[in-house]
Design a protein around this nucleic acid. Structure first.
Lengths: 202, 202
DNA sequence: GCCTTACCCTTACACCGTAAGCCCTACTCC
DNA sequence: GGAGTAGGGCTTACGGTGTAAGGGTAAGGC
């Protein structure tokens, strides 16, 4: 299992095949089937192993700070295993580790004064983003050099002015500096947490 | 292309292979390569074809209602092609249709008075969820029958009380009725749009 | 000593994406 | 009308995949 995680970290999750993993372990492919039922069983095992590393905050702080630190912890772990979002999405039913994690999140909300219905909504909203299990749809943190940027701007500027404006602003050297993923994540997180606070108090 | 989309709608995107698609068209597998460079080229073509169906709202309504109706339109289309989120995530660079869509969203925000920086944040927040390109992390709309529900509750109740409480509430016959995906989506959408409005006015 | 259990191996099958190369049809241009 | 050409289709083949079936072998319990 650990070997599989290491291999996925290094070569990406697509590179994981029974034969490759077996070779990595100095073993034949079919031998893996004594420890694992399927390939999908293998993947879900890997996923669970990573998720179970996320620390469940148990100090009785504010629900908001608890949730915040949990989300950041989840993200920091997942950043070390970039393939996890992919495998999480492939799973049909949540495994024990995932369940424990979800239970902790719901628990923080309930103890923080949210009703079941509110917590349910909150879970859906936090859903993908805050729990950290999501890739950004638009990866705009790329650092394209000025000349290709200029070329793109000339090409697309007429048809997609707004997109180009933003892309240029985000590009290194643009008005906003380059897009900082961490800062962006925290911004979105606080955005949602503040919204939840308002939802609760209304 | 249309045939591929139809096949994916029916059998799921995993069922799409060059040979299957070719057979579906009464043709040999390799013939497809005259129309398509790769399999991933095929998939991105399918994705683009679907995304380009999303109507870009051009009436000059409120930014909020514009965004709202665009998101709902996107969702309604994607509900008819459940495999799209998967293929969108597989794409490295956004194609023209995706770019047009993003440009429209950014345009609505900018015209609505958002600064570039604000619009950038908003895009990240709207990101996966609102644009509709996301599967729910926890699919709790399943309708499990009472006895298995009771069994689960007994089994997990001790270790995951909060999760069980919510699951029971959401299950058919529970306090909340069954989880209505559409309502949940709209709730999250309005939640975010309201947050954006506040972000703008502050 | 024996038997169970746990691990590993070999072989084989059906399927996948796709590189290389050939063939035929249909259209264009003189 | 005849020639040239390009484009769609076909066949074959290669190296990869997940995994079903079945056989071997060493350690631990009686």
């Amino acid at each position: 299992m650990a070997a599989a995680i290491e291999l996925a970290d290094r070569d990406g999750v697509d590179a994981i095949s029974m034969r490759k993993l077996a070779q990595h372990l100095g073993v034949e492919a079919m031998s893996l089937y004594t420890h694992v039922r399927n390939k999908s069983d293998l993947l879900s095992g890997m996923t669970e192993a990573v998720i179970s590393q996320i620390p469940i905050s148990i100090d009785d702080a504010d629900w908001k700070t608890s949730l915040r630190q949990m989300a950041l912890a989840a993200r920091s772990i997942i950043l070390r295993h970039p393939w996890v979002p992919t495998t999480v999405e492939m799973q049909a039913a949540p495994g024990p580790a995932m369940l424990t994690y979800a239970n902790a999140v719901i628990g923080i909300l309930r103890e923080g004064g949210f009703s079941v219905a509110q917590a349910h909504h909150a879970l859906h909203i936090l859903g993908s983003r805050v729990l950290g299990f999501t890739r950004d749809l638009f990866d705009d943190s790329g650092d394209l050099d000025p000349e290709t940027a200029a070329g793109l701007a000339r090409e697309l500027g007429a048809s997609h002015p707004y997109a180009v404006e933003m892309a240029l602003a985000v590009t290194h050297g643009g008005a906003l500096g380059r897009c900082d993923d961490d800062a962006e994540f925290e911004f979105a997180l606080d955005f949602i947490l503040d919204g939840l606070a308002r939802l609760q108090s209304s």
